[in-house]
């Protein structure tokens, strides 16, 4: 399994505060990885070190092949028309795919419109298309879906997913809204307070966890409890691995959002590959 992105002992310090610390993770090639975590978790910092915008204080991050990055504010030249923006992209990139760039026309974005007058969704679509047309091996997107309406979010994700269906492209994208990522991402990275909390294949993670609900008296002995919440006489908990023996528990598979929230609420819990798996 070839890694498209690999961080080892990555740490970034700003003045006296570590914004990212002891971060070791590996994203296999061809995956669509979701990077989630609350504000200030270190998501943007991790992305900036990966694309070379920021030098780590300690450790290192390696990327295989060409990288394209779309920043959160989707910087584009507002006075350029859409067509001029594409021409600029073609002339400044040796790896440029006209077929990808031409898809903008199919999305109903008028070539003669000034970029500054586009809607938020159209602007995101232009920024993502520019990045994809450079035919990167790794596409890094910082909050690509922020401030977009549901239809625009769907359209942007369709463009990205279509490209991953056509060739081996690894995607790392951050988002606040986990529900947007459930069907599109197959790899999960959770950052919390500058620490890596979860990293792994989403299906495997979901298969490996259970949401248990039962009376407060039910015994959780033998279970690896990630976190729990109580409402009156009922307790609900997220556990990893095999469920406890007590028959009063009702168990079901968690959704992605429940899994992420369970970990974020228990910052001391972690689901990471064993150290031997890192770098493999």
């Amino acid at each position: 399994m070839r890694a498209a992105l690999e961080a080892t002992g990555l740490g970034v310090r700003r003045r006296r505060t570590w914004v990212l610390r002891e971060c070791s993770l590996s994203v296999p090639a061809g995956r669509v990885a979701a990077l989630v975590g609350p504000n200030g978790a270190g998501k943007t910092t991790l992305m900036h070190t990966a694309v070379g915008l920021l030098r780590p204080t300690e450790g290192n991050v390696r990327v295989a092949g060409e990288v394209a990055f779309v920043a959160q504010d989707k910087p584009l030249y507002d006075t350029f028309t859409v067509a001029e923006t594409l021409t600029f992209g073609r002339r400044t990139n040796t790896r440029w795919d006209d077929a990808v760039a031409d898809r903008l026309t199919g999305l109903g974005i008028p070539p003669r419109r000034k970029v500054g007058t586009l809607s938020g969704g159209q602007r995101a679509q232009v920024a993502v298309t520019l990045a994809l047309a450079r035919r990167p091996d790794l596409l890094v997107l910082d909050e690509p879906l922020a401030n977009l309406d549901p239809l625009a979010r769907h359209d942007v994700m369709r463009s990205i997913m279509a490209e991953t269906a056509d060739r081996e492209l690894t995607v790392l994208l951050s988002s606040h809204v986990v529900s947007d990522l459930e069907e599109t991402c197959d790899w999960l990275v959770v950052l919390n307070g500058g620490r890596l909390q979860v990293s792994g294949d989403i299906e495997e993670l979901l298969d490996d966890h259970l949401v248990l609900t039962g009376p407060v008296e039910a015994s959780a002995a033998g279970a690896r409890v990630v976190g729990e919440s109580r409402t009156g006489r009922q307790v609900s908990m997220l556990v990893r691995g095999t469920p406890p023996q007590d028959p009063r528990w009702r168990a079901r598979r968690p959704g992605l959002e429940e899994l992420v929230m369970g970990y974020l609420r228990s910052p001391e819990a972690a689901a990471l590959p064993r150290p031997a798996g890192v770098g493999a």
Binding site: G30, R31, V32, H154, D155, M157, R158, M161, A162, T164, A165, D166, E183, T184, C185, D186, E203
Partner: peptide
């Protein structure tokens, strides 16, 4: 896979799986 991905905006690996 490409057709399913284009219409549903889901991960192509999901279709292949």
């Amino acid at each position: 896979a490409r057709e399913v991905v284009e219409s549903l905006a889901i991960n192509p690996n999901t279709v292949l799986k």
